[in-house]
Amino acid sequence: MPTITYHQPGGDTQVIELEKPDRIMQAALKNSVPGIVGECGGQAMCATCHVYVREEYLDALPEIGDDEEEMLEVTASERDERRSRLGCQIEVGGSGPEAIEVDIPEEQV
């Protein structure tokens, strides 16, 4: 079963097992994971689903698209050149990795 592990800035962790493939932002909203806002509904418009992907999962990710690249330049918490991604753009399960762990930034808005 595809699995997303969300690490909160305060140290809490939520492990969400997906019944079917889903994106990091959408799965967080559906499962009430705090710290991911997703204000635009997943259009790569608002940069409020910024996550830091843990190193060991980086190789399995798709390339950063132009829209995502631009939004990552203006995130509320500082961008990490290697690990920052938008949660609405990364699918877990299906065509994406089966498991991923992300750190949630301090600020999204």
Partner: peptide, 18 residues
């Protein structure tokens, strides 16, 4: 359900909260 962005769409709407 198209969550991979391949031109389809999610069959279920995105809930505001779970």
């Amino acid at each position: 359900d198209g969550t991979d962005g391949s031109g389809g769409t999610s069959a279920a709407p995105l809930p505001l909260r779970g």
